[in-house]
């Protein structure tokens, strides 16, 4: 926006007191390009808040607010240039659809509709990570408010992301993956992995190791003798100087505790 020497601060103040309608009259009546420019600038600046207000309503769709304000301002400038004060509608009535139109066009031009909605996907991932982490830290399942705070989103956004984030756009497993080369066509299903049993077993062993550490010493010894040294209950009983019945009870108690610990860490 340019400033020229012909406009004095006094004139600037004269405009400050004017409402939009008066300014538009001044604008249409202005005879010099410099004066027109100054009044136009004034009108645009006066409605910056309107643009920010509207842009904020679109701020949760994954685009930076600053970008939305910028494209919204383009809409505002267009509205200022095209508005005809004689049509007896308020400028804001004319400007709001123009500004929103520009913001929505911005989303449309991004090809947003065709992509998987990134915001929901990312939010879904972030929320799931937060749930896992918070559960570990607090030893209980976190509330939505806690998840929202940890992720930096609203509770509403979290509910939505958890409800729909992962399944927003259902894609068939038989979808052919686009491939321009001559290579054999593959379907999405071909790429879906399956649970790796040996990995699973490694994890289980690690969990079991930790779980065994939580047992009292005597139970731990019993588990060791029974399942690692493969001794019978009677042999264990003799070694510990207790009855076979007692070994059986302690073994059962130990196994239950292991089960419980491992279920919790799943």
């Amino acid at each position: 926006m340019t400033t020229t020497a012909t406009e004095t601060p006094t004139q600037q103040q004269e405009w400050d007191g004017m409402d939009t309608t008066q300014l538009f009259r001044e604008l249409r009546a202005a005879t010099t390009p410099e004066r027109q420019e100054r009044i136009r600038d004034q009108l645009i600046l006066m409605h910056g808040n309107l643009v920010r207000y509207l842009a904020r309503k679109f701020a949760n769709r994954g685009e930076p607010l600053e970008d939305l304000i910028q494209v919204g301002t383009i809409g505002l400038i267009n509205a200022v240039d095209r508005f005809e004060p004689d049509r007896h509608i308020k400028f804001s009535t004319y400007a709001v659809p123009t500004i929103i139109g520009e913001i929505r066009r911005y989303f449309r031009d991004k090809g947003w509709n065709l992509k998987v909605p990134r915001r929901l996907k990312e939010l879904n991932l972030a929320a799931n990570r937060a749930i896992e982490q918070l559960s570990q830290e607090m030893g209980r399942s976190p509330t939505y408010a806690e998840i929202a705070e940890s992720v930096g989103a609203t509770e509403e956004e979290i509910s939505e992301a958890l409800e729909m984030g992962s399944a927003y756009h259902a894609v068939s497993l038989d979808t052919e993956l686009s491939d321009d080369t001559e290579s054999a066509k593959s379907a999405l299903l071909d790429l879906v992995g399956e649970t790796d049993e040996s990995f699973r077993r490694v994890e289980l062993y690690a969990q079991l190791k930790d779980a065994i550490q939580t047992l009292p010493e005597r139970e731990r010894n019993i588990v060791h003798m029974r399942f690692f040294k493969e001794m019978s209950q009677t042999e264990v009983a003799k070694k510990l100087g207790i009855s076979q019945m007692h070994v059986s009870r302690l073994q059962q108690k130990a196994l239950n505790q292991l089960k419980e610990v491992m279920m919790r860490s799943e």
């Binding site: 509207l54 509608i89 009535t93 929505r104």
Partner: peptide, 14 residues
Amino acid sequence: AADAPISQLLMEVL
């Protein structure tokens, strides 16, 4: 209709 509130203008656009 000429001075519908902004909320209504928004709804009409959306």
